[in-house]
Nucleic acid binder design. Structure first.
Length: 590
RNA sequence: GGGGUCGUAGUUAAGUUGGUUAUAACGCCGGCCUGUCACGCCGGAGGGCGUGGGUUCAAGUCCCAUCGGCCCCGCCA
């Protein structure tokens, strides 16, 4: 029996051994990343979470060690002891952090063997179903380990910041009450109360408001949230929020505390200094200029509104769209980014996804345009458009005419598509922007009623209160989103702390008093017992980590993620349960 | 719910207008090799093309269905 683990404790992580350790005896443990067997001397790259170091087995070191080394295969788990030495001149490996040195092994124990892994850890484009099935192996890859390491640093920096600033971390329940508004709930059947269900929280929203009523004053929590909706590249059904709530604050107080958080987090995790305060943009301006409420402001390509120029146009399509209350908008691509005719045509398909029935384009020449729609436009219209969009020779214009939503969706996304395709921004740019003055509610055609844009506990702006019953969609909310590089990384609001206003909002949302009582009675009650003015915000930890690591998928910043069908290929969840389990819960599969 | 795309040795891919025994690289196994680091050299094994139907003399190639991965629309207060 060897002394490894019991007497010979690990002295270093592999990549932490350096030139100053030469002549020292070290004990290392890790995985055999690669073996190079020269018949005589054998080299093994020993890997752990820190990185790699080359270890050497010389035949002279002793026959038994050398024989044991012959058995080493990929991913065998090794414990070894040896002396650090500088590599012979000319044998250094500059690609390796530890490339100047190596460890000459005197003792070796194979702590565990390994089957040949199903994929190579050097390979970068392994199909994702294989990676997810063997996630514990996928997670050995340094790139993913780095992502999770940064995620850990981000969480730590966040906790430090809040602790330093007088916030208290409080846990809130996972087994809680289903809420009618918002996303679809994950339900958990109650065994004790037959036919009753808990819901997993979409967010700890109501509980953190209650904590303000309790007087905690400053709350935070890094917490899982659950929404049973379809997945995207940046969306999982269970995700992590940095959840915050503060009492006796206004929007500007909260915003500046959160800017401090961002500054600290980026300094500690990425050693980057942010310029604060961040710029702010109203929701209306964001939509008008960028077509989206999560605008990527790293580049221009802003939308220009041409509706005023074209109501009498000879171009029937524009004229009719405007007459029907629609808008005509355009974006301008600089001449340095000219596209081929084929590429221009392909963009039609791109905007069709967002409901655009067409995409008109124009190439600006010295005196005219090259464009399918040029012949329909008057010289005056062309002149006014050229002036409004400040065109110069070689620029390309893209027009969409439709109802505002379609125009904004298609041009807003076309703008992102072109910027990415044509590299109009630098990969490491960081452009934060607060979006403010959201509408409190909007009319839902599917539900035939007004629905909250944020959530029903968001405070209306006091000066808009009078409009609440007459023109609900004109009421602005005291809500704010933080957008980074076109990604909504956080959103929050000042909440309603008065019962009468909360009731009024519920009523406009079509919630009867009885419904409001049965769903949110506990909140309404709490508002009657000295609820302080309060507000908060929640950040998406996963999305923030994605941006900080440059990950293209949320799965690359989550240790054990779900597939698009919300399945876990590793554990095979979700799965069937036994009839006994169902009976215990009084459940029947229909 | 809908649109798109992919599925061929362990992995990554190639596979002509359907046509002999389905290719390659890496990996794996065996042998040789004392300074490699994607070690090298020699030899070898390994799949019947996601699954199920169909068309055909003949299907990895065509058709239908189905399962799964990814991207998107809807959805995500």
């Amino acid at each position: 029996m060897s002394n490894f683990l019991t007497i010979d404790k690990r002295t270093h992580y592999c990549a932490d051994v350096d030139i100053s350790d030469v002549e020292k005896e070290v004990t290392l443990m890790g995985w055999a990343h690669r073996r190079r067997d020269h018949g005589g001397v054998i080299f093994v790259d020993l890997r752990d979470r820190s990185g790699m170091i080359q270890v050497v087995f010389n035949p002279e070191a002793g026959q038994s060690v050398h024989e044991e080394a012959h058995k080493i295969r990929s991913e065998f788990v090794l414990a070894l002891k040896g002396k650090v030495r500088k590599r012979p001149t000319g044998m250094e490996n500059p690609a390796l952090k530890t490339g100047e040195i190596e460890v000459v092994v005197s003792e070796l124990e194979i702590l565990n063997e390994s089957k040949t892994p199903p994929f190579s850890f050097d390979e970068t484009d392994i199909s994702e179903n294989i990676r997810l099935k063997y996630r514990y192996l996928d997670l050995r890859r340094p790139a993913i380990q780095q992502n999770l390491l940064l995620r850990s640093k981000l969480a730590a920096a966040t906790r430090n910041y809040f602790e330093e600033n007088g916030f208290i971390e409080v846990e809130t329940p996972f087994l809680t009450k289903s809420t009618p508004e918002g996303a679809r709930d994950y339900l958990v059947p109650s065994r004790i109360s037959k036919g009753m269900f808990y819901a997993l929280p979409q967010s700890p929203q109501l509980f953190k408001q209650l904590l303000m009523v309790s007087g905690f004053d400053r709350y935070y929590q890094i917490v899982k949230c659950f929404r049973d909706e379809d997945l995207r590249a940046d969306r999982q059904p269970e995700f992590t929020q940095i959840d915050v709530e503060m009492s006796f604050v206004t929007e500007s107080d909260l915003i500046s505390v959160m800017e401090g958080l961002m500054a600290q987090v980026f300094r500690k995790c990425l050693n980057r200094e942010l310029t604060i305060p961040f710029p702010q943009l109203s929701y209306a301006d964001a939509i008008n200029r960028y077509g989206k409420d999560n605008p990527d402001v790293r580049f221009g390509l802003e939308l220009a509104d041409l509706t005023d120029i074209l109501p009498q146009s000879n171009f029937k399509l524009f004229r009719e769209v405007i007459a029907a209350g629609g808008v005509v908008k355009a974006i301008k691509l600089d001449k340095s980014s000219a596209l081929s005719r084929k590429e221009l045509d392909e963009l039609k398909d791109f905007v069709a996804v967002y409901g655009a029935k067409g995409l008109a384009w124009a190439r600006v020449n010295v005196t005219d345009w090259t464009s399918p729609i040029y012949k329909f436009l008057s010289a005056d219209e062309v002149k006014k458009i050229n002036e409004k969009m400040n065109t110069s020779e070689g620029d390309t214009l893209f027009f969409v005419a439709d109802v505002p939503r379609v125009v904004h969706d298609s041009l807003g996304n076309l703008r992102l598509h072109l910027a990415k395709k044509l590299n109009l921004y630098k990969a490491d740019d960081l452009s934060f922007v607060w979006i403010t003055d959201f509408p409190l509610m909007e009319y839902s055609e599917t539900e035939k009623r007004y629905v909250s844009m944020h959530h029903p506990f968001t405070s209306p702006r006091l000066e808009d209160l009078a409009l609440l019953s007459s023109q609900p969609d004109k009421v602005r909310a005291r809500a704010y989103d933080l957008v980074l590089n076109g990604s909504e990384i956080g959103g929050g609001s000042i909440r309603i702390h008065r019962k009468d206003i909360q009731n009024q909002v519920f009523s406009v949302l079509g919630l009867s008093d009885e419904e409001a009582r049965s769903k949110f009675g506990f909140l309404l009650d709490a508002l009657e017992y000295g609820a302080p003015p309060h507000g908060g915000i929640a950040f998406g930890l996963d999305r923030l980590t994605m941006i900080m690591t440059g990950a293209e998928s949320i799965r690359d910043v989550i240790a054990f993620p779900k597939t698009q069908k919300a399945a876990c290929l590793l554990s095979d969840a979700p799965s069937k349960v036994s009839i006994e389990q169902l009976m215990e819960l009084s459940l029947k599969i229909v």
